[in-house]
């Protein structure tokens, strides 16, 4: 009975297979690599928040994907009720997810400092709860967010003989990487050049000493966690128009964000950029040579091997134990 349905899929698949098994061409590969920049942007955006919560605070936050999801829902909600432009919702999504992050830190994370496995479990529970609550409010239906009309179309870098674009990247992907790098720079500035950032680093390096010197450590903890969650919210807003918005969407980004952060190492923010670049470009390169699922499996396996030999990440400075 279902056989017809499946044979249809089978045919469709074959058609796709024919399309992709063209002869190896440098132009197509470069197109794939240029578009890999879009993946790099997403990885960087989603990994950045984790670089704060995990990298700076050492909190294993498995609800990170859900903060991305919350950001996307904030945008959806503001767009559907006030008709706001996606760009305009970014600050709101930052503030709202940040506030929820602060609340979570106060009620859950704070009780579990120094117990990484318990934190991991609790945030996993939190992730289920957040998904459930959003499902209660917005239902499980897929929602769609409109991307800003002025960021549309493709940037053509190279045309082929017929004049159709051979290497092109959509402006929206460029926009994503732009936002990601802007946030990276901003975060680096906040962390390294401001008073607040100095306090944050002081707390992570020596909590007791920082407290003795008059730093309000619990406030700093809360602010840092909230900032990391806020970044995840911004990521959610920017990503929301790429795919549909749904309660389990965060799960898709969670593993990838973790891989990015772990690959790059968390000592320096620039590690996130390096991790995102490595993972994004290698997956789109391998995807061109083989196919998408294989690329994902190979990249994940590579990351596992990397964690085994260098759990502190590729781009960390050797420190004395």
């Amino acid at each position: 009975m279902y056989a017809h349905l499946f044979s249809f899929f089978y045919l469709a698949q074959e058609a796709v297979a024919e399309e992709t098994t063209q002869a190896f061409s440098l132009v197509a590969l470069s197109n794939q690599l240029v578009n890999g920049i879009g993946i790099v942007g997403i990885l960087l955006l989603t990994g950045l928040g984790l670089a704060i919560t995990f990298g700076v605070m050492r909190i294993i936050n498995l609800a990170h994907g859900e903060f991305i999801m919350l950001g996307a829902y904030v945008t959806f909600w503001m767009q559907s009720t006030f008709g706001m432009d996606l760009l305009l919702t970014i600050p709101f999504s930052f503030l709202i997810t940040g506030a929820i992050g602060a609340l979570v830190e106060l009620t859950i994370i704070r009780r579990l400092y120094g117990r990484p496995l318990e934190t991991l479990l609790a945030t996993w529970g939190l992730s289920i709860v957040l998904q459930g609550v959003i499902k209660l409010i917005f239902t499980a239906q897929l929602k769609y967010v409109k991307s800003p009309p002025y960021i549309s179309g493709n940037l053509t870098l190279l045309k082929d003989a017929q004049g159709s674009p051979a290497i092109a990247i959509s402006y929206y992907r460029l926009f994503i990487i732009f936002v990601a790098i802007a946030l990276l720079v901003l975060t680096g500035y906040l962390l390294n050049k401001t008073d607040l950032g100095r306090q944050v680093r002081a707390v992570t390096q020596n909590r007791d000493m920082a407290r003795c010197l008059g730093v309000n450590t619990s406030l700093i903890d809360m602010l840092t966690f909230a900032y990391g969650c806020g970044l995840a919210g911004v990521a959610g807003t920017v990503i929301s128009s790429l795919k549909s918005v749904s309660p389990p969407m965060g799960q898709d980004y969670l593993v990838d964000a973790w891989m990015t952060v772990v690959t790059g190492g968390v000592d320096k923010l620039i590690g996130v950029l390096a991790g995102a670049f490595l993972i994004g470009e290698s997956s789109s390169g391998i995807a061109y040579l083989l196919n998408d699922p294989t690329a994902r499996v190979i990249v994940l396996a590579a990351v596992i091997i990397l964690i085994r030999y260098k759990p502190e990440g590729l781009f960390t400075i050797q420190k004395r134990g």
Binding site: P116, L117, M259, V262, L300, A301, I307, P311
Partner: peptide
């Protein structure tokens, strides 16, 4: 290896995700 508890958990997450794909 010197991989500690939390990283092992993350590795198991990656294994599960990779095998599903």
């Amino acid at each position: 290896s010197k991989v500690s508890g939390v990283y092992i958990t993350i590795i198991t997450l990656a294994i599960s995700s990779a095998l599903t794909t």
